[in-house]
Design a binder for these strands. Structure first.
Lengths: 346, 346
DNA sequence: TACATTAATCTAATCGTATAGATACACGAC
DNA sequence: GTCGTGTATCTATACGATTAGATTAATGTA
């Protein structure tokens, strides 16, 4: 492997000069510049960024930890992250915490030891206090999921507002027996989604039976199981609000298995849209979050913070940015069908 | 930021001793070990992996370049990669080439300058010869897509065999007017998929009209457009074989828009399965590739090669591993319906 | 001509770690 | 008591780049 010294020797200059032409940091005469470039070419030299990082104390790398690398929701976020990072000359290391707080902490430590310049975190750790030490070391921007009570830099969706709007939509269609499948309630986003749902029901003076609040774990299987439970109740709901995309997949599978048609017998409204939702039946009415933009914006903010760190240590106004979500009404929600309802409950 | 020297000073030992206890490379007395660990704890010291990498000339990092980070197909592969890499103590930098050969080359160069220990590549560059120089520098394992005529390390699916089997399935149902939507034909995998399809038709002595071979670009939109073209032919096909998942989404959208029902009026068979295929109507009959396993296995092979490089320069038997694909028959394929056919062609 | 100023280039230290080789010490065997 | 052997620890250099500060050359000015 060639080094900057090899290039310097072949070009008959000092290593400093080679460094200057590579990084365009100082003016170098045309003559020397040519010789250096020729030497680089002849030796097929590529700078070693590890050495560079050690010296300049920046790696041009950001780390991102997500709870489910498989979930297209995070896939879209990652796409936005990769795009924005690459645009600004950063590479990104993606890590999968698999919804496991311990694994998340492990990943954060690994990333720190690699001296990433900053971290994007979609946390699955509700007790994030213990990690303050490790996250405080380098700038962190939270994406989608923040720790409870967190007030620093973050980019999130309007979970409460969107859920309230979603529930209103169902109520507006005439539903009064509405159930919700929540995610793990130690995550703030899940509490917010439940809270928005509750508010809408309260506005409309509708009851919310305990039976109608099912707590899942964001995995497909839990959507399937809680879906079965709900629809096997003596008086099943006429509409279900499901708190994320993977659980919705499970829910739809449960309906299919029970032979319950949607939206004729039960309406389904999902949090999180999927790209392919428009290609199949029923087309799901969903709350769409601007995922790619979330990733892009979080990265932009993080990089701004990283580069500000250099200039001034004074911590800027770190703010949580809340992006608006959009309710996309499609075919899976419709007015309750009383005749069918009677049929199914006999 | 604390360094190993700070730890050594506080513990009253040399940096070598600290290094030994951290890496467990040599025996250190219990007494000193305790003092070192206490000092590490007191200073909240974290080793700097950048410096370590420079010294030992390994970064414990692998780079992966994929054509579409958004596509769940690659998402699954990445999941397998991340899992296996983390298991072996490697981090992974994911890059998105966005099906752009120039961007792919740029990413490969960036990864090389970062001195990744190895590279996983799902190439969108059909003329990959020019890159030999850059890819030869560190071990490379191709995943899913290989360059034409490539014979080195790779993990791929059995495209030809699976396509042949898929076409046989359609033929077995009684179809004789079968169309195909291919991907870009400069990619070997696309040629293979077309070839397998052709072989099955030849076996059955069925004709393949030029009209029935549409070339897409692996994006949803091209599936939509070619789908429209196919179904607007004077004599449209009774079955369509679609070469990847995103184009299938477009195709289904086209059918929906034209009011053509599947499988009653046309059967659809897709290459690439989706996790959610079982949750919606119609449930798509698909060729499922073992994506996660592809990623996992490719990573395992790559890491084995990396760690062998250390020991012996002798290039092992680098082989292309072909994983079997599975045809999952669901609802989107059925025998052609003659009465409906008559109806639609008048 | 002598001197100040500026620009181009070089010298040498540094980033934080790993590790080869040197050193010191303890323990038996003779 | 001497010598060899093995173990524990330390000293000092190297990894490959950047960059402050020194040096040299070129130019302008009085």
């Amino acid at each position: 492997m060639r080094t900057i010294r090899d290039v310097a020797r072949l070009a008959g200059v000092s290593t400093a000069t080679v460094s200057f032409v590579i990084n365009e940091k100082a003016h170098v005469s045309d003559e020397l510049k040519r010789r250096v470039l020729d030497a680089i070419d002849a030796l097929n030299y590529r700078p070693n960024n590890v050495a560079r990082s050690l010296k300049v104390r920046r790696t041009q790398t950001i780390g991102m930890v997500v709870p489910q690398i498989t979930n297209p929701f995070f896939g879209e976020i990652m796409t936005g992250v990769e795009f924005e990072a690459h645009k600004s000359g950063y590479s990104v290391i993606f890590c999968n915490s698999n919804e496991d707080p311990a694994l998340e902490t492990l990943h954060l430590n690994i990333l720190f030891e690699r001296r990433v310049d900053g971290i994007l975190l979609s946390s699955s750790n509700p007790l994030h206090m213990g990690d303050r030490r490790s996250t405080r070391r380098s700038p962190v921007v939270f994406v989608d999921r923040t720790p409870p009570g967190y007030l620093g830099a973050a980019v999130v969706g309007d979970n409460l507002g969107a859920s309230r709007e979603a529930a209103r939509h169902l109520i507006g269609l005439g539903h009064s027996r509405i159930a919700i499948i929540t995610g793990p309630l130690n995550l703030p986003i899940c509490v917010e989604r439940l809270e928005g749902f509750r508010q809408a029901l309260q506005e409309a003076v509708l009851p919310l039976a305990d039976d109608f609040v099912k707590c899942g774990d964001f995995r497909s299987e839990s959507g399937y199981l809680t879906g079965l439970e709900l629809m096997r109740l003596p008086d099943p709901p006429t509409a279900i609000f499901c708190s994320n995309n993977t659980m919705t997949l499970g829910l739809m599978r449960a309906l299919g298995q029970l032979g319950i048609s949607c939206p004729e017998q039960v309406s389904v409204l999902a949090f999180d849209d999927f790209e392919w939702a428009a290609s199949f039946r029923p087309q799901i009415t969903a709350v769409a979050q601007p995922t790619r933009e979330m990733g892009r914006l979080a990265t932009e903010i993080l990089i701004k913070e990283i580069e500000a760190d250099k200039a001034e240590a004074g911590s800027e106004k770190k703010q949580t940015v809340v992006l608006a979500n959009e309710l996309r009404v499609r075919d899976s929600t419709a007015p309750p069908n009383r005749s069918l309802l009677m049929l199914s409950s006999t």
